[in-house]
């Protein structure tokens, strides 16, 4: 039914986000919570091109992806020499700066007014107005990103990433210019996140800065920790579980005056329990 289709679309989106973050965090060991920023860049660029220029969706999405990649290149050149927790703090700063730009650069992004009436994508004259149709697009995108992710993981490039994760200095001694690898994967991750952003913008037809806050980054991060870092399957299952869990609590039948608060409470509780009982995540192969 419609509701489940809607949830399925969200799962696909968060699956893409999870996979893209997993490449950076799980495979390479770079703890990043900047992802919502790139998600947002993808969404905003696509939305602006669709609404302002009436561009074809796939072209707009491609431009959004490229924009995000460029920003990532610039930024990662700057922060890639940070290690561990410092890198984490740096990415926090980046996300908040990006959000601040979405909010304040009003001549472009319309700030809190957001960008409404974003059209659905049109493929060969077929306008993906029905959610079920959109689901096919979303699922296809997820599949593509999944294959890209597995491909990277299995390639020699991926093996270098893993060894950077395990011990960066040793990898350098072996002659690998690790900063380039980190730069590359951070950029790839950002570009895939932007893909999700483009899909999000056209699906929900309205975006504003509130969808791209640090809280959103932390949520994406949670989905892959839960699923298990370093696992592509985990990067999709984690989001599946958390999205279902969070929506599922709507049906839990809490007393209505405090139902919404109870839902958040139950969700927080579930997070704590899940971490206590499965600290490696479900499919995890790696601990930072």
């Amino acid at each position: 039914m419609e509701y489940l289709i809607h949830i399925a679309v969200l799962v696909c989106l968060y699956g893409i986000l999870g996979l893209s973050l997993n490449l950076v965090v799980g495979e390479t060991g770079l703890i990043s919570v900047a992802h919502a920023g790139f998600y947002g860049i993808g969404a905003y660029v696509t939305a602006l091109l669709l609404v302002g220029l009436g561009m074809n969706f796939f072209l707009a999405m491609a431009l959004g992806i490229i924009a995000s990649g460029l920003v990532a290149l610039l930024i990662s050149g700057v922060i890639s020499r940070l290690r561990g927790v410092y890198f984490l703090f740096g990415t926090i700063g980046l996300n908040i700066i990006a959000w601040s730009i979405f909010l304040n650069w009003q001549s472009v992004t319309r700030g809190p007014l957001g960008i409404p009436s974003i059209p659905r994508p049109g493929i060969w004259g077929l306008d993906l107005y029905q959610n079920l149709q959109f689901l096919f697009l979303a699922a296809a995108s997820l599949a593509i990103v999944y294959f890209i992710s597995v491909f990277i993981k299995k390639s020699s490039f991926g093996r270098v990433l893993n060894s950077i994760r395990e011990d960066e200095e040793a990898t350098q001694i072996f002659g690998y210019a690790t900063s380039y690898y980190k730069l590359a994967i951070f950029t790839i991750g950002a570009m895939l996140a932007a893909l999700a952003g483009a899909l999000f913008a056209t699906y929900i037809t309205y975006i504003d800065p509130s969808s791209f806050t640090i809280n959103e980054s932390i949520f994406i991060f949670s989905t892959i920790v839960l699923g298990g870092l370093g696992s592509s399957r985990g990067a999709v299952l984690g989001p599946l579980l958390l999205v279902f869990l969070f929506e599922g609590f709507r049906f839990a039948g809490f007393p209505s005056e405090i139902a919404a608060q109870m839902r958040m409470l139950a969700y927080g509780f579930a997070l704590v329990l899940l971490m206590l009982y499965r600290p490696k995540g479900i499919w995890g192969t790696f601990r930072i």
């Binding site: 419609e2 509701y3 809607h6 999000f200 975006i207 969808s211 709507r250």
Partner: peptide, 10 residues
């Protein structure tokens, strides 16, 4: 927007 959409869908 996203939560509003989820709520509306339900």
């Amino acid at each position: 927007g996203k939560e509003g959409a989820n709520a509306a869908q339900k």
